[in-house]
Amino acid sequence: MSDEPVLQVDGVSKSFGPVEVLSNVSMSVPSGAVVAVIGPNGSGKTTLIRTLVGDLRPTTGVISYVGPDTDRPIGYLPQEPTFRPGFTAAETMAFYSSLIDGRDPEPLLERVGLGAAADRNVEALSGGMRQLLGIAQATIGDPPLIVLDEPASGLDPNMSESVFETAAEMAGSGTTVLLSSHDLALVEATADTVVVLDRGSVAAAGPLSQLRERFGTDSLRGVLNAVVSDTEAVAVVGGSR
């Protein structure tokens, strides 16, 4: 991890009609780190991630990519990745690869454990395998920042662990990985920096050790419980409508 940021977020808010989902979010994403965004359901994690990758335009505020100049600055795994039916996993990867450098995507499939399923049609892949294909897709072109929205969703515990290990390896080789997850144990084991969202705002952010010290707890769950106002109910921002 280096002190140089790869992404700078300044005062970002996002509203859908009258509902403000993100409120004045500011953060810096350090390069070569695993940054985890955590928070209860409805706290705005996916909206923040979609805004960071450019899928949503912030209502106010600025997001600046300040990493190395490259053809694909940000790789992205959406929360629910979609793939064109009728194409195999290898063909799907080859298509995305052809948009960048046309390199053989087979090693990327091997890295996420999908080598044996390369010739299987995407609609015949299980939910977890689709998730892995989405992760492989996010790494095409070696983007300096890879954003994964709940990468462990639908994966068994071993595969979830493998995904987080892969994220850590990528960070070790200089790639920044920003991910959201509800699996606090894996986040705790992998993340260098944690951003806790609560009702659309950054409730706490920083290196894990600092957060533990600051909130006088020895676990990430303790940090989350200390900063989130109500851990029993889904956060509904902007009222009932």
């Binding site: 450019g54 899928d55 053809d71 694909r72 940000i74 992205y76 959406p78």
Partner: peptide
């Protein structure tokens, strides 16, 4: 797959 495609050039 527009959200993903728009992360490519």
């Amino acid at each position: 797959d527009r959200p993903v495609l728009l992360t490519y050039p």
